[in-house]
Design a protein around this nucleic acid. Structure first.
Length: 255
DNA sequence: ATGGTAGCCTTGCTA
């Protein structure tokens, strides 16, 4: 089963690119982030015509996540539990062929020093508690998405310049490590130890052209899911296209 | 050189 994660930075603006990539890459499951549309405005006909069932948690202008699958999706959970007052659309989870799969868009957290940073850290605490609950079910699971975390300095083109950024701050990285310390595995690093492999390049200042990016899109696997992992690749092709998202898809291959 | 780009339907906010 090929599971993809892609922050598309507006599904409406990206629809031709997304449809072309689905046709070329043929993923079985797709976790989308930053669709930037309300659930009612999701391009359901086009996505279903491409062969996918879609479960969507939308939001006007900002955020918004979706879980697409060629096989049926069961027991869908909309929103990350733990804060009923949180109205930001950042989490959707469902079961495909016995595997629990989440599409998540973790808060960016910048600027540090505003309420955005504690919101990010609190969201990570909620994810930690939710992951603990999932582990207790003993069902294999995959938490896929834009984590807005560079796990180590090897995942940043300029670690010194980014040291104080919410994506690289020690508190953010510590909470990411706490997820790993639960027993979860970050899939890309199972298969690749080379530094400076990125999933995001800012639109500004020629970052893509100079390959100055960040690796912030990740798959966290439960022990039983990691036993089934057969590969994890960053597909850079979509980032080089016209009208590209600033993120490119990452694909996990699960037996 | 203290900028730059992209998407939102806002004329600024988020990334």
């Amino acid at each position: 089963m090929k599971i993809a994660s892609w922050n598309v930075n507006s599904l409406k603006a990206r629809l031709p690119n997304v449809l072309a990539w689905l046709e070329a890459a043929q993923p079985d499951v797709v976790c989308l982030q930053e669709i930037k549309c309300q659930t009612a405005d999701f391009p359901r006909l086009e996505i279903e015509s491409a062969g996918y069932e879609a479960h969507v948690l939308g939001q006007k202008s900002y955020n918004g996540v979706a879980l697409l699958s060629r096989q049926p999706i069961e027991d869908v959970l909309y929103g990350l539990p733990g804060d009923p007052a949180d109205e930001q659309a950042r989490y959707v989870e469902g079961t495909v062929a016995g595997v629990r799969i989440a599409s998540l868009y973790l808060p960016n957290g910048n600027p540090v020093g505003t309420e955005k940073y504690p919101y990010k850290l609190a969201w990570m605490d909620r994810l930690y508690h939710h992951a603990r609950g999932l582990l207790a079910t003993e069902q294999p699971f995959v938490l896929a998405g834009d984590y807005n975390i560079c796990p180590t300095d090897d995942d940043v083109y300029d670690p010194v310049g980014w040291r104080e950024d919410a994506l690289c701050r020690p508190e953010s990285r510590a909470k990411f490590r706490s997820l790993l310390n639960l027993g979860l595995t970050e899939a890309y690093r199972l298969f690749h130890d080379e530094p400076h492999r990125y999933s995001f390049w800012d639109y500004q200042a020629g970052r893509w052209y100079r390959d100055e990016g960040l690796r912030i899109d990740h798959f966290l696997l439960s022990p039983r899911a990691s036993d089934r992992a057969q590969g994890c690749e960053i597909d850079k092709e979509p980032r080089g296209r016209e009208k590209a998202s600033d993120h490119t898809p990452v694909v996990l291959d699960l037996a």
